[in-house]
Structures are given as structure tokens and as C-alpha cells.
Write a protein that binds this DNA or RNA. Structure first.
Length: 406
DNA sequence: TCTGGGGTCCTAGGACCC
DNA sequence: TCTGGGGTCCTAGGACCC
């Protein structure tokens, strides 16, 4: 059994770097890409900003306190998605085995194509050169024999570097590190491990699996394997990708709201966004979930399955309203969201009822117009007064399909 | 002038059926 | 006049990721 060779490409401060590239006056400055709304967080700070301790996820005032000269830029989603597609084109020159992990992260399995281009390090160097020359952006590349370790290595290579981790080095490198250095182990798991007296990956690796099982159940095996640097998960290409399992939208409101009429208006807007995406993917949803976050940040969800799947805006909206009616609201709302699940292929419309047919034709017409003339050209009358905040892309965006975790 | 938004996967209790 | 057991679906919540 021969080892695989996996590359993990991670763009350096992706959104911020794109902005700096396109606006030279921002070069070498502390900048951060942020969302459009009033209550937003930093999505991507530049390395100049990070030098001040500024991090992704901070609020604007928090970052400003650390770095008074920081410049905020509202995200330009289309630019980042277009750039992502350009990167993918470059990567295809080296292998067809590409997994798009997020808008700025990619796994490449170069096991079978490597001999055409030299060593793994040669390929990493060439990829970095091509991205630099073609797109004026830098990235970091991790090289190892599985995805877990390739991703771990790219982090060590940051920024603008290459890092390789060989099998014989793994335990020496991992053992002293805190568990959350690996992708898949977060703060909660780290804390639970601490309570067990496990502070690093070496201790985790040597821990009895039966002990881990008591705290982590089915996930114990995986934790144990991760500490050993074992990960058999294959690089899965777009073709192998499964369809999305959920599609949803949520929005933190610029100001907390209490009035039912206002809540309803937002629900209609959200239903419209969600259903347009369902229809664009030719999917219908069998379940609707309403998410509510109160002023004090307590968050809860309530969902309802439907008798038949739909992607009609009014239908989804009606279900959301029905769910809302079952909730006795206790505080002003900070966030409201609609999610859909139990997604099935829409299939060819089977019009049992005249009303269903009318709804289908109307939705199709609206989608077509919006497709040709811009996103919100035609909308519901009650939404027209809405000052629709610019859609902010999330870093989890992917050009196709969804992300998979173990 | 605190704390985004898009997802996946897992758990756990209860309903319901055979 | 005493309480099975397995499977599946539904719902709510939480960990984790970028």
C-alpha cells in the first residue's frame, strides 16, 4: 500500500488580499473585510491588521480598539467567487482530484499525477507561482499523506509558504501540541479532554480508547485516530459530491424588532431567498425550520415537516408563519432565520391543482426576470420598502455542492 | 456603541409501527 | 393484572467548520 500525496491549498487572508490587490492604496495597510449590516463582524482581516492582534470574528469596535487605523471594507461577494473559480482552473492543471473545501481552501490528491510534474514540493511551488503570477495573490500549501495532516501543515506554512509533514515526523510534531490544533477538535472537546487530564495530542494518542468512549461515545475512535495523524477520508471531487441537505438564510437585524408585522415581513424576504435557491437547484423542501435569537442572544429553533415537499415561496412562508404562531415571544428579536431540509429533486411539475400550476409559473417568471436583470428586480410588494442589505458571502461558500465532515 | 452567516453531523427523547 | 424489543421518523439542541 503506497502512501497518498495530498496538498492543502489555503489562500492567505483571502478576501482582504483580493481587496488590497484591486485597490493599491490599501496595500501594506491594516484592512478588514466586514459584512454590510450594522451588527457585523470581521470576516477577513489583512496580515497587517492581524499584527495588531485583530482576528476573524471580532466586532468592529473590538478590532478598532486594538488597531485604531484599521480600514473596513464591505465584502464584494462576486469578486471572491470569480477569483475562486480562477484558482480552481489553475489547480486543474495539476490534477483532476480536487476537493473545494471552502471558497479559499482546496485539497488536491496528486498521488497519480505527481510523476508528470516532479516532486510534491515542485508542484506546490508551481501552484504558488501560477496563483501569484496570474492572480497576484499568495497562498500557503501543506503537503502530507492525508487531508488531516495536509491541512495541519498549511497552517504551519502561513503566510505565503510551503510545509511538508512526513510519516516519520508525525508523532514528534503532533505530540506536544494542544488537541485543537487539528481540524475537527474544537474548544468544547479540548475542555472535556482537559478535564480528563489530557492536554496534548501525545496524551490523547496514548489514552485508552475505553476511557475516551465514556466521554465521547462514537466519536472516541476518531479522536484517537486523529491524535495518531490517521485520516483515510478521500479527496472527493465535485462529481462525487452529494446534493445539499439543507438550504437556509438568516439575518441579524440592524435593530431588534418586536412587531409581528415586521417579523412577518422579514419571514417573507427570507422565504423568498431560500426558495429561489431551492428552485435554482431544482430542489423541493419537506421541512421548514424557524430560527429565532432574542436580544439577550438566547437562540432556539422550531421546525415542522410538511405533507408534501415544495419550493414555492408562499408555501414556505405560510409554514414559517404557522410555526411563529406557536411561539410566545419573550423578548425583542435580534436574528431571524428560515432553514429547509428533507430536500428532494423537484422533478417535473405535476399539477394536480390549478393553484399549484399558477404558483409554479409565477415563481418561474420571477426567477427568470431576477436572473436577467439583477437579484431584487421583481419582488413582493411588501418587500419593496425594505432596505435590503447587500448579501454577504460567508467563507463557507462553495461553487457547487456542499461540504462534508466526518 | 459587544457577539455574522452558511453549512454538516451527532445525540437523545418521544411517537408510532410491527 | 403487568409491562418486549427493534426500527424509523420527528423534533430540538449542540459541536464544529470556514
Amino acid at each position: 500500500m503506497v502512501d497518498r500525496t495530498i496538498l492543502h491549498i489555503d489562500m492567505d487572508a483571502f478576501f482582504a488580499s483580493v481587496e488590497q490587490r484591486d485597490r493599491p492604496e490599501l496595500l501594506n495597510r491594516a484592512v478588514a473585510v466586514v459584512g454590510a449590516g450594522r451588527r457585523t463582524v470581521l470576516v477577513s482581516p489583512s496580515y497587517e491588521a492581524r499584527a495588531f492582534g485583530v482576528k476573524t470574528g471580532m466586532t468592529k469596535p473590538q478590532a478598532r480598539a486594538l488597531c485604531p487605523e484599521i480600514i473596513y471594507i464591505t465584502a464584494h461577494a462576486e469578486k471572491y467567487t470569480a477569483t475562486c473559480s480562477e484558482i480552481i482552473k489553475i489547480l486543474y492543471d495539476f490534477t483532476p482530484d480536487i476537493e473545494v473545501f471552502s471558497i479559499d481552501e482546496f485539497f488536491l490528491d496528486i498521488t497519480t499525477t505527481m510523476h508528470l510534474f516532479g516532486s510534491a514540493r515542485d508542484i506546490a511551488t508551481n501552484i504558488r507561482k501560477k496563483i501569484k503570477q496570474g492572480l497576484s495573490l499568495t497562498c500557503s500549501v501543506g503537503i502530507s499523506y492525508n487531508k488531516l495532516l495536509a491541512k495541519f501543515s498549511s497552517k504551519r506554512a502561513k503566510p505565503d509558504g510551503i510545509s511538508m509533514l512526513k510519516r516519520e515526523e508525525v508523532s514528534a510534531v503532533l505530540d506536544e501540541l494542544e488537541p485543537d490544533q487539528l481540524c475537527g477538535i474544537g474548544q468544547k472537546t479540548k475542555q472535556t479532554l482537559r478535564e480528563m487530564g489530557i492536554y496534548n495530542l501525545g496524551q490523547l494518542r496514548n489514552c485508552k480508547i475505553s476511557l475516551l468512549r465514556k466521554k465521547f461515545g462514537i466519536n472516541a475512535t476518531n479522536l484517537h485516530l486523529m491524535a495518531k495523524g490517521i485520516d483515510e477520508d478521500p479527496v472527493s471531487t465535485a462529481e462525487e459530491e452529494e446534493d445539499a441537505k439543507t438550504i437556509g438564510h438568516s439575518m441579524t437585524l440592524d435593530h431588534d424588532i418586536t412587531q409581528v408585522s415586521e417579523i412577518q415581513k422579514h419571514l417573507l424576504l427570507l422565504s423568498d431567498k431560500v426558495c429561489r435557491r431551492l428552485r435554482a437547484s431544482q430542489l423541493s423542501a419537506g421541512c421548514v425550520k424557524l430560527t429565532i435569537r432574542y436580544r439577550d442572544f438566547t437562540t432556539f429553533t422550531k421546525q415542522k415537516s410538511m405533507l408534501s415537499a415544495t419550493n414555492d415561496t408562499k408555501q414556505i412562508y405560510k409554514v414559517a408563519i404557522a410555526i411563529l404562531k406557536t411561539i410566545r415571544l419573550k423578548q425583542p428579536l435580534r436574528l431571524i432565520g428560515i432553514g429547509t431540509s428533507k430536500l428532494t429533486a423537484q422533478g417535473s411539475p405535476n399539477f394536480l391543482f390549478e393553484e399549484t400550476e399558477r404558483a409554479y409559473r409565477l415563481n418561474k417568471l420571477l426567477d427568470d426576470v431576477n436572473e436577467r436583470f439583477g437579484d431584487e428586480t421583481v419582488s413582493f410588494a411588501s418587500l419593496l420598502t425594505e432596505d435590503n442589505p447587500e448579501t454577504v458571502i460567508s467563507p463557507a461558500w462553495r461553487p457547487y455542492g456542499t461540504r462534508r465532515y466526518k
